[in-house]
Design a binder for these strands. Structure first.
Lengths: 212, 212
DNA sequence: ACGCACCTTGAACAAGTGTTCAATACTTTT
DNA sequence: AAAAGTATTGAACACTTGTTCAAGGTGCGT
């Protein structure tokens, strides 16, 4: 089963070349642009090799999806070499980092979301990764605000994720960078809000929203 | 040129039936699920008729895109029968309304975004609609906060849109409804924030973000 | 040297794609 | 009633799609 090891060091092995070609095409042209032939051409290999490493087209896409999910999870991975609140602050600012806010990555994410929406199989992988992301973020919030109950941490994490998703999406549509910066500040405000109290901080002193 | 008029009243004319079938398929199965044959089947017409009303497949998709954009713009359309701030509040809450937060609509929006990301032609239509939406929202903010300079209104509108997009996207991924409600409250907070001042409200009294 | 396990190729196939078009039905005008 | 205009059909087209597979290539242990 296991695919062979190091390939002379110079260039990456063809299996990951194929996967990266698929991700590149997906981010640039959407799923309609990802045909097995196009992937093979982009990766510089023969058509048959794509099906050799990835049985199906769905297997290939699934691999891409998992890879991006994995990458996303790293954003909220705990890093014990820095203080908890600095750790959280860094994680929050990372999502506006130059490497993430590239069209290539954002577009890839968008297309994967769209795929997950259309296909039950992808949807499950996606939902699981989403949950783990919120959990990771909540854990960071928890260590930065010791004493805050876990449910409150998850609540904050959910609220932050809403804004982060909005930033990702809106960055793709070309909103101004200043708005992104303000949104980052808003996530920090949520993350570091004082314990609980009368919630005046969250609602700005206005009347509560009545459930419709 | 002009397509003929009223069709006996009972059922909608086939042209819009075709368009709606396309939107339905797009929202349910993504762009790969929208073939001319599938659209024809879904609309209950023959294959040829789809190409009769819509020259291209891209013409069909473009029509769907425009229709959704139009629908979105209605969300921030001025309604002079109510007071300005009530008008704004209603617009902000509308995005969490039962009719909008359906998977059918959200999914459609997502797939259209993905398409726009992959195709320059759709992208332009989308960007234009996005701008008009922000403009409409800024106008509502402006009449609810008379005296606030226009640039500040647009700024607030951008910030609100980030959160709204996040809500739409996250609702699709199945986050809890409570988080959506809190996000709505957050948009209201931005919309109705006091004029300017020391911005303590926006930043929660924490140190300003330093530009990286 | 042979054998064996893995890697790589491109041709072949069936199924599906968007688009075109002659032929037919229906409506309205003359 | 005939003519003209518009709707509607499904067969036909050239083309692309995902997948399979026999054929050959590569390296390696023995």
């Amino acid at each position: 089963m296991g695919i062979s090891a190091v390939n002379s060091g110079e260039q990456v092995d063809r299996q990951t070349r194929i996967l990266e070609a698929a991700m590149d095409l997906l981010s640039r042209h959407g799923i309609s642009g990802v045909s097995m032939r196009a992937v093979a051409r982009e990766a510089g290999v023969a058509l048959g090799l794509v099906n050799y490493y990835y049985d199906d087209k769905t297997t290939l896409i699934r691999a891409a999806l998992r890879r991006v999910d994995e990458h996303d999870l790293l954003l909220v991975a705990p890093d014990h070499s820095v203080a908890p609140d600095e750790q959280l602050r860094r994680a929050l600012r990372r999502v506006a980092g130059a490497d993430l806010l590239t069209t290539r990555y954002l577009s890839l994410r968008l297309h994967l979301w769209a795929l997950a929406q259309a296909d039950e199989d992808y949807a499950q992988i996606n939902a699981a990764a989403f949950d783990r992301y919120i959990d990771g973020l909540a854990a960071l919030v928890s260590s930065a605000n010791p004493g805050l109950p876990w449910e409150a941490c998850r609540e904050r994490a959910s609220d932050i994720v809403v804004i982060q998703n909005g930033m990702w999406l809106t960055a793709l549509l070309g909103v101004d960078k200043a708005s992104i910066q303000r949104s980052i500040a808003r996530t920090e405000q949520i993350a570091f809000a004082p314990a609980e109290g009368p919630r005046a901080d969250e609602n700005g002193g206005r009347p509560e929203l009545t459930q419709p």
